[in-house]
Simulated scan of single mutants.
Amino acid sequence: MPGTIEARLAELGVTLPDAPAPAANYVPFVQVGDMVYVSGQVCSGPDGLIIGKLGADMEVEAAAAAAKSCAIALLAQCKAACGGDLDRLKRVVKLTGFVNSTGDFGDQPKVVNGASDFLVEALGDAGRHARSAVSAASLPFGVAVEIEAIFQIS
């Protein structure tokens, strides 16, 4: 039976996928006390990874949607860290967003807003967080966005 957070996600038309497996030699999350540190999640959609470079071949709106997909994967990892009970999530503490972009592109914050806006819409005040949004010359597999997160859980 889904909990309160998953019911809210369902209202938004979002079903959490299984937590993605790591793509290299790392763990998907580490819990220290009541904090969960989730490794960077790359953007993906129904057709696979979302590839692109802002300032070259991708628009901000498409990249913001890609960032939202990262946030959904982050919640899936948090659910796994919580033993399947996402209602143990107390708050999103921090996001660090990496945007695959050209040297002259400066709208990284608008891109990462796709994740931030979604988390606030889904979690209310518990979704408000500190954040960094930075440019990257390239990202793994050529993806447009990668985001890591810190969550507080009960």
Rank of each mutant, 00 (worst) to 15 (best):
D117S: 15
S69V: 00
E11M: 12
L75G: 00
D34C: 10
L74D: 02
G48I: 09
Q77H: 10
D57A: 04
V120L: 11
D87K: 09
L12P: 03
L95S: 04
F98I: 05
E6D: 11
V112Q: 02
G127R: 05
P2M: 15
D107Y: 13
D47V: 09
A80Y: 04
V32M: 08
A62G: 06
G114D: 05
V30R: 14
D18N: 10
D87Q: 08
A71W: 00
P46I: 01
V60M: 05
I5S: 07
G103E: 15
C70K: 02
C43T: 11
E146P: 01
V112L: 04
G55N: 04
S101C: 15
V42R: 14
A122P: 01
I51L: 14
P2I: 15
F98P: 00
G84I: 02
G106W: 03
A73G: 12
S101Y: 03
M1R: 02
G142I: 06
A10E: 12
V120W: 08
Y26M: 12
A21G: 03
A130N: 14
A80H: 04
A136Y: 09
G13M: 12
P2F: 15
P17T: 15
A65R: 09
R131I: 08
D85A: 12
C78D: 02
V120N: 07
V32T: 13
